[in-house]
């Protein structure tokens, strides 16, 4: 646990970045984890294969909130090909953790799964 609640995670969980909604997004993706009541919704403005703007909102635990906040920062300015490559390892690296317990994996993955819908959308 002492490894899990790193300063980065707590900072993002308590001060989530890019929290809010976009007025006219080109894409809106929602992802839920019914088993714990977590929900995130991502609003993206995509132009010429590039993510110009990102906002998100949702409810969840510190891990899913921090993950969403970090993902929202990471995908800004990325192309669809780059979003395709985004995975849990990248997010965990930014969080400063090297492993995650299987019971918390879903929390970490919800925001990643949400923005990966862009990938499916594009195919």
């Amino acid at each position: 646990m002492n490894d899990l609640y790193q300063e980065v995670i707590l900072d993002h969980a308590q001060h989530p970045r890019n929290f809010g909604v976009l007025q006219s997004p080109t894409h809106t993706f929602r992802e839920m984890n019914a088993s714990c009541g977590d929900m995130v919704e991502f609003y993206l403005l995509v132009q010429d294969n590039k993510i110009l703007e990102v906002k998100w909102r949702g409810v969840g635990c510190a891990i899913s909130t921090a993950s969403a906040s970090i993902v929202s920062e990471m995908i800004q300015g990325l192309s669809l090909e780059e979003v395709r490559k985004l995975d849990a390892i990248h997010v965990m690296k930014r969080m400063g953790i090297s492993t995650i317990a299987p019971t918390r994996e879903k929390c970490l993955m919800i925001p990643i799964k949400a923005v990966k819908q862009l990938d499916m959308d594009a195919k």
Partner: peptide, 28 residues
Amino acid sequence: VHAHDVAQVLDSEGVAVRSGHHCTMPLH
């Protein structure tokens, strides 16, 4: 504080509790 985070910190103290909706979504 989300219930999952409560449970996670409690676990670090050796305390096993349950967090979530306990299979009672209509009630929650």
